[in-house]
Amino acid sequence: MTNTSTGPAIAVTGLRRSYGAQVVLDGIDLHVPEGTVFSLLGPNGAGKTTVVQILSTLIRADSGEARVGGHDVLRDPDRVRAAIGVTGQFSAVDDFLTGEENLLLMGDLNHLCRAEGRRRAAVLLERFGLGEAARKAGAVYSGGMRRRLDLAMGLMGDPRVVFLDEPTTGLDPRSRRDMWQIVRDLVADGVTVFLTTQYLEEADQLSDRIALLDRGGIVAEGTPAELKRLVPGGHVELRFADVPALTEAAVLLGVSPDPADESLVLRVPGDGGVRALKALLDRLDAAAIEVDGLAVHTPDLDDVFFAVTAAEEVTSR
């Protein structure tokens, strides 16, 4: 292949797909530049997996166009397949085979020669911390190990575009961190990563751009910072010992306490960053107001969704 033009790794226009009468994707446009991480963020049932299935040639769209790695998914599926690696939400590991055998199987199916297959398998086992488990059957792997093996299998063919469908759903925090580091390493190697997730934090940590998918449509798209500006949910909760302290602080900070709330809590808008937090506490300290407790509330997926879908409903009226 002599495709040296640095076009987008993924270009999607007007993608639609229904299951019977139920519309799952209702005209999706996506544009993912090469070598970047793109996150599709949305709740269960939003259509994230359907997008991945269409882009990875597993299913067909009803209409619209999708190109991956410069090739049309409908007209040239084998070229697309040769360019991609896919890791699903449910591990695609052969339970009867050992970790090493799973990788060698992928090597054979990618038509690598034996020596090259063994070399890549050894590198990936080492890189993903699976060296010790290499000769154990996939069936006995822990959730995190399976997910890493799954991803390693997708990388045996040295893909230019990697699809990760909810790669950390159901993983413990440590395995999640490991997975994030792996994604960062991939991007450092110039691979394009298309990620779906339900976790805003994950999209925030990893992505260059995020698209919010809700009920089959993209409701917002932008960099993590751009998206967060849409969300008013971030605030610092200050708890006070008595009503005078609460009132004093409310006057000082110019925030009116919620009259319905009798818990002596004041919600101060802000992103909860260390500097902002320190400045806030310094002001209270200088005014000699005693703070009983403090909690930082960062915007989460619920907030983003609430904000964006609420705005949608208003504009569509």
Binding site: S56, T57, R81, I84, S91, A92, V93, L109, N110, G154
Partner: peptide
């Protein structure tokens, strides 16, 4: 098993 879906996304 998910492995069949994987096979379907490969150029084989």
């Amino acid at each position: 098993e998910g492995i069949i879906a994987r096979f379907r996304t490969m150029a084989i």
